[in-house]
Computed example of a mutant assay.
Amino acid sequence: MFLSKLLEPVKATAQQAGERLWQMYLSGDVQTEIKADSSPVTSADHAANQIIIEQLTELTPDIPVISEESHLVPLTQRQHWPRYWLIDPMDGTQEFVARSGDFAVSIALVEHGWPALGVIYWPKEQIWYYATRGRGAFKQQRNLINHIQVRQHKQGDPLRIAVSRRQPQHLISALLAPTQQAEFIALGSCSLKSCLVAEGGADCYMRLGPTGEWDTGAVHIIVEEAGGRILDSQFFPLSYNQRETLANPDFMVIGQSSVAWPDLIQPHPTPRQITD
């Protein structure tokens, strides 16, 4: 009941932040800076961040918030939190800057080290993806709501792989088994590609390169409730709030669980190490 009561207010918060992002996107009145990790951050990120934190603090004053765009609380303090909000006020800032429109708001509630509620809002299409633990995953466009599930992949069929517009496809092709054929679907933000797997539009999505736990928190519960999984490059589950930094390893979003994925996707020969 606790998660069910939170869902609609969180969806409304994601929409409000998304509408602010879209207004700023259309106006073009945005300042862009480069962070220490060489990724961009804009005044739109900060505006959405403020909306989300204010709304969540009012909704659940006793639940702390971790955001990509806020100061990170030390692990010694946050490792004792039984639950916390994990947010990315704009997943896909590079898409915002590049004017593709493929950016989204991401809000997750993590309980006892695992995502329990997730909401993604895509302002351009006015679409929500959302899930709560044990209750399935859903896609909503305006008032039309559909239950979503991962695609049933047939043995021998090409893999439908969601990829970034900005990552060379040969890097992904190199991770496939030598005889595995693939079809590539280019899309923007990390969360939208993950949701594409959740709704059956792609079989998998492989992410190479830096991401944070805020990039996967909300989509993790959505993908799992849709029948898929998110695993690291060695086919182990991701973890949350276990390190001083919140950096993710390379990971993959995979659909139908009965597929022998290790036969189709080769583990990285030298996994990228996470350092605190």
Rank of each mutant, 00 (worst) to 15 (best):
P210H: 08
R229N: 10
T216N: 07
G156P: 15
A162L: 01
H220T: 10
P237G: 07
Q181H: 12
L231S: 11
L176G: 15
V223T: 06
I161M: 09
L192K: 01
G228R: 01
G217H: 09
A226F: 11
I172G: 03
W214V: 08
C195R: 01
L171K: 08
A226H: 05
T245H: 07
R207L: 13
E225Y: 05
F235L: 11
I185S: 05
S191R: 03
Q181E: 15
L238M: 13
F235C: 14
F235S: 14
A226L: 06
Y240L: 10
S194E: 14
T216L: 10
T179I: 01
F235A: 13
R207E: 15
R160V: 15
G201K: 01
I222S: 00
V219R: 01
A174T: 06
R160C: 12
D203M: 13
S233V: 10
A162P: 06
Q180T: 15
E199P: 01
E225H: 02
S164T: 04
G188D: 06
E183G: 02
D232N: 13
K154D: 14
A202Y: 03
A218T: 05
Q180K: 13
Q242F: 00
R160N: 09
V197Y: 02
I185E: 05
S191Q: 05
D203L: 13
P168M: 09
P237T: 09
N241A: 10
T211N: 09
L192Y: 01
S173M: 12
S189P: 04
A182N: 06
F184N: 11
Y240G: 05
I161K: 05
D203W: 13
A198E: 12
L231P: 12
K154I: 15
M206H: 02
Q169D: 11
A182R: 03
P168K: 07
Q242V: 02
A198H: 05
I161Y: 05
E244Y: 01
L175W: 08
Q242E: 11
Q234T: 07
Y240C: 02
L192Q: 04
A182G: 03
D215Y: 07
L159R: 00
S191L: 10
S189W: 04
V219H: 04
I185K: 11
H170V: 12
C204K: 02
T179S: 15
A186C: 06
E225P: 10
R165H: 09
A202R: 01
G227F: 10
V197Q: 04
M206G: 06
C195N: 13
I172A: 03
L159G: 00
Q169F: 06
V219Q: 08
G200R: 03
L208H: 09
P210V: 11
S233H: 09
Q169K: 03
